[in-house]
Amino acid sequence: MVDASQPRGPKPRKRLSRGNIMLYGTLIVVAMYYALPLYVMIVTSLKGMPEIRMGNVFSPPVEITFQPWVKAWSEACTGINCDGLSRGFWNSVQILVPSVFLSIIIASINGYALANWRFKGADVFFTILILGAFIPYQVMLYPIVIILREMGLYGSLWGLVLVHTVFGMPILTLLFRNYFTAIPEELFKAARVDGAGFWGIYFRIMLPMSLPIFVVAMILQVTGIWNDFLFGVIYTRPEIYPMTVQLNNIVNSVQGVKEYNVNMAATLLTGLVPLTIYFVSGKLFVRGIAAGAVKG
């Protein structure tokens, strides 16, 4: 991966040249455009309904109220359940934690086996795995329903965990394989001469050297699984719908008066987890998506 921390374009000329003003002007306008939706979400969620009906989406709140947040979290209705998004939030947490751990453990071991213990045929399966990442999920949705039903997991939390593990595998395996391949092979050889076996080398040599990539994988998975909608809606049942599905059901429900402020509070609440991870992890997030994006 190229180090993206050093700007290397042509040298800028004088501070306030016309070109510079245009450059920064453009960037500021673009940045404002990108920031706008976040701003709109925040201001709308802090207004009362009368104020929303009077003004427009961009006007800042005159009278700040947190009522929409409270309502979105604990009172908003989906169907007959009126206990708010909190239910979806905790569902998502329950789905997230095992999915992230399981997918990362399995993918890291896969990557390690592929990088250091290549056996005949391993590359064939790996190629299928990577190509599999390009297959539209839609093609595999229904057979997986059947498989999960046969296993007695359809509609359960663990079924969804399994689905996330499977579909996270290509990208994570690639990530780990590339990382482990970059670790000097001599370390691996030295450990073998020292009598360490498959698991010994994994736990005592590779793992301690690979914390950054585990963090990257974790960011990738937390964001991806939290944001998932399709698998959640297909492989779980309404009581354990993840937050995104519940959010969509709240906002796009056809019954009752539209409460835009509650909707935006709910939307913001759902986006809060990945946003927090994004703003906290910064560079690692960028590294993760860049590593995930630049395949091969």
Binding site: P184, E186, L187, K189, A190, R192, V193, D194, G195, A196
Partner: peptide, 15 residues
């Protein structure tokens, strides 16, 4: 296995 051969190895990168 390498460890059962009674050999020790010193690598180029020292590893």
């Amino acid at each position: 296995e390498p460890s059962e051969r009674g050999i020790g190895m010193v690598f180029q990168s020292y590893a």
